[in-house]
């Protein structure tokens, strides 16, 4: 449940950045100009689409899978936990790469990207913890 809520918050954060990138929001409430520097850099695009769009898709996928895995038949499925761990693991790698680019190439830090990196890391930690608990729980039930 916590994973779904955190992912939903991420959907809105990434949508905000996407709307800025597409020009629907005039300026980021950043405090400094670094957000705009990062968002206007050439690394703000990935495979022809804004990085923020990939963020929206990532968080939306996490939200949908986590919500589906919270109730009903999928609630007991280990596959859901495994899928969440894999998706969020990919998110951590991508986020780590973006943070590296901010520090080493762009030389500017966007605080929304930092918040997103923290969210992604949190999602990965939660997914891994849930998966392990679930696996242990099912192992215990198997030996009951």
């Amino acid at each position: 449940m916590t994973i779904a809520v955190v992912a939903l918050a991420g959907v809105f954060l990434a949508t905000y950045l996407l709307l800025y990138k597409l020009g629907y929001i005039p300026g980021l409430a950043c405090g400094t100009g670094d957000c705009e520097v990062v968002q206007s850099s050439r690394w703000a695009m990935f495979l022809g689409f804004p990085v923020a769009l990939w963020g929206v898709l990532f968080y939306a996928a996490m939200f949908l899978v986590a919500s589906a895995g919270s109730f009903g038949a999928l609630a007991e499925s280990l596959a859901v936990g495994r899928l969440l761990t894999v998706i969020s693991g990919g998110g951590v790698s991508f986020s780590g790469w973006l943070t590296y680019l901010e520090l080493a190439e762009i030389h500017a830090i966007c605080r929304y990207c930092v918040v997103s990196a923290v969210l992604v890391l949190g999602l990965f930690a939660l997914s891994l913890r849930d998966y392990r608990l679930h696996a242990a729980e099912q192992g215990a039930m198997g030996t009951e």
């Binding site: 800025y20 597409l22 968002q39 206007s40």
Partner: peptide, 8 residues
């Protein structure tokens, strides 16, 4: 260089 200006 402003992205929003570019979009407009």
């Amino acid at each position: 260089e402003c992205p929003a200006c570019g979009v407009f």
